[in-house]
Amino acid sequence: MKYEPTENEDIKLNMTSMIDIVFQLLVFFILTFKVVVQEGDYNVRMPLAAVAPDEEMDDEPPELIRVMLRAGETGAISTIEVDDEVEVKTFVGDTTEDLYRQLNEYVDAKVSLGDDPEEGVDTEVEFDIDTTLKYRYTVSAIEAVSGKQLADGNVKKLIENIKLKDNSQ
């Protein structure tokens, strides 16, 4: 039998339930939505056991810079000392920014001594940090030795090999 549509036949779907569900979903996603803040990492490799002497004979050991972060009474940074096994320098500044700027310039000068831009890879920094120093000052010091922000907005990498001296005991 041939189907013949009747004139003016208008098929209508009931949209109400779909719109209900769609709005429920929308409300759920709006309520659970949270803007995620961009985060970044500083890599710190800390092997527990020292390398055996006969294993490390193959390569020349990296140049070591010791950075001592000293805390004040409130847990804020008071002074920074650096020891590159030749001389010891103490940075004193009126502000914390001033201290970190001096550390950053010192490390930049050390790394830039040779023209080889890869020289920084072979330099290692060991932090000796007062246990009472607040973590944010530690991170600022790690930032100061890791890189330098140039005037054009680019970042010059300084030292990537960072380790912490264990002062927790």
């Binding site: 007062d130 246990t131 009472t132 607040k134 973590y135 530690t138 912490l164 264990d166 002062n167 927790s168």
Partner: peptide, 9 residues
């Protein structure tokens, strides 16, 4: 950020 570094260590 206010954690003493000794605790992190």
């Amino acid at each position: 950020e206010d954690t003493p570094t000794g605790i992190v260590q």
